[in-house]
C-alpha cells in the first residue's frame, strides 16, 4: 500500500478581514479544488473564517532547526532596533 497516497495540504484561514491568514491544520485531497472544499468543511464549521488558503504540504520549505542558533540568535543582541533603546526625556512627550 502507500503507493496511492492522497496528498496533504496545509490550511490557512483568515478569521476576519483585516487579519492575516493563519495556519490552522491540514487536510487530505487529490487536487486543489477538493482541498479548498475539505478545508471549508473541516475548519470553518463554527464561523472561523472569511477566506481560506490551501498549500500543498510538499511546497513548504522550512528552516532547519539545526540552524536555529545561527538564524535567530544574532538578532537578539541588536537592541538598538527597538525604541526602548533610546532615552528621550519625559518632558518631550510621547514619541
Amino acid at each position: 500500500m502507500s503507493k496511492n497516497l492522497i496528498p496533504l495540504w496545509e490550511v490557512f484561514i483568515r478569521p476576519r478581514n483585516g487579519l492575516a491568514h493563519k495556519h490552522c491544520g491540514s487536510v487530505h485531497a487529490a487536487d486543489e479544488v477538493m482541498a479548498l472544499q475539505a478545508a471549508r468543511d473541516v475548519y470553518t464549521r463554527r464561523g472561523e473564517g472569511t477566506s481560506i488558503w490551501v498549500v500543498p504540504s510538499s511546497a513548504i520549505t522550512a528552516s532547519d532547526p539545526e540552524n536555529k542558533d545561527e538564524n535567530f540568535e544574532p538578532s537578539l543582541s541588536k537592541v538598538y532596533r527597538h525604541p526602548t533603546f533610546y532615552e528621550i526625556p519625559d518632558d518631550v512627550g510621547h514619541m
Partner: peptide, 11 residues
C-alpha cells in the same frame, strides 16, 4: 470513502 467526506456530507 474518506474522512474529509465524513465532514462534508453531514454539513
Amino acid at each position: 470513502p474518506m474522512l474529509e467526506e465524513d465532514l462534508a456530507m453531514p454539513n
